[in-house]
């Protein structure tokens, strides 16, 4: 019997102007690899931000079956949200992940440096540790951000469009890192994406976000050709 990690009970999420998503009822189970899919503007990022605690829950309840203060979720934002003006090396960015467990006044120590180097190696980027973050390619930046999320030693990893705007080779490398983490370490992963073809072979389940709500189901069922045609065909014909 899989163990629940996050449980949403009739949850509404949104902003000041009102709810974007309503009646959300699903469970993220431990060790799952989930894709959040749906048309543009359907509320995928809203749902991800709600799961991260970045948006207030308007109605209902999100139950986290782990101590979020002690083990916060790993978060990989879209890389464009981070300002390249900061003079940070790739390793310094990854070290930020270790701040999750460091109280104020406790400096980054040997353990944190070793952990950050290990996480960079897991993302296949040990060679760029000393390079400026701003000078890396889109795909490398994204993998550095994955390494940063791993450095917080999370039980749940949430990613916002990690393969958007990167070339197909880099996108495949990112998906390879993620599926390895899920398969070998049992890390629970939820990612927002538009790239059905890329995630179909690796994700075990899909949360389909559309029409102001979201439903969860197995990949084969949720990505059945007729369902895809239903949504994207309707959108295409306006």
């Amino acid at each position: 019997m899989p163990k629940a990690l996050v449980r949403l009970d009739d949850v509404s999420l949104g902003y000041e102007a009102g709810a974007v998503l309503q009646h959300l009822r699903f469970t993220v189970e431990e060790g799952e690899f989930l894709a959040l899919l749906g048309p543009n503007g359907a509320g995928k990022t809203t749902l991800l931000r709600g799961l991260l605690g970045l948006l207030p829950v308007l109605e209902g309840h999100i139950e986290y079956c782990f101590d979020r203060a002690a083990t916060p979720p790993g978060y990989v934002p879209q890389r464009e949200t981070l300002d390249p003006i900061f003079p940070l090396s790739a390793l310094e960015v990854v070290l930020m992940g270790t701040y999750a467990r460091l109280p104020p006044l406790r400096p980054v120590g040997r353990r944190e440096r070793a952990l950050a180097a290990h996480c960079l190696a897991q993302a296949g980027l040990e060679a760029v540790a000393g390079q400026p973050f701003w000078a890396l390619s889109g795909g490398q930046k994204q993998r550095v951000l994955i390494a940063r999320a791993l450095a917080s030693e999370p039980r749940l990893l949430l990613l916002d469009e990690p393969t958007a705007g990167v070339d197909p080779g880099a996108a495949a490398a990112i998906m390879d890192v993620l599926s390895r983490l899920n398969r070998e370490q049992g890390l629970t992963i939820v990612l927002v994406t538009h790239q059905l073809r890329l995630v179909r072979p690796v994700v075990g389940a899909v949360i389909w976000v559309d029409g102001g709500t979201a439903i969860k189901g197995p990949t084969a069922e949720m990505l059945a050709p007729e369902r895809i045609m239903d949504v994207f065909g309707a959108l295409a014909t306006g």
Partner: peptide, 10 residues
């Protein structure tokens, strides 16, 4: 650098 991450880290 990353306000959202700081919020996630509580």
């Amino acid at each position: 650098f990353d306000r959202d991450l700081a919020v996630v880290f509580r």
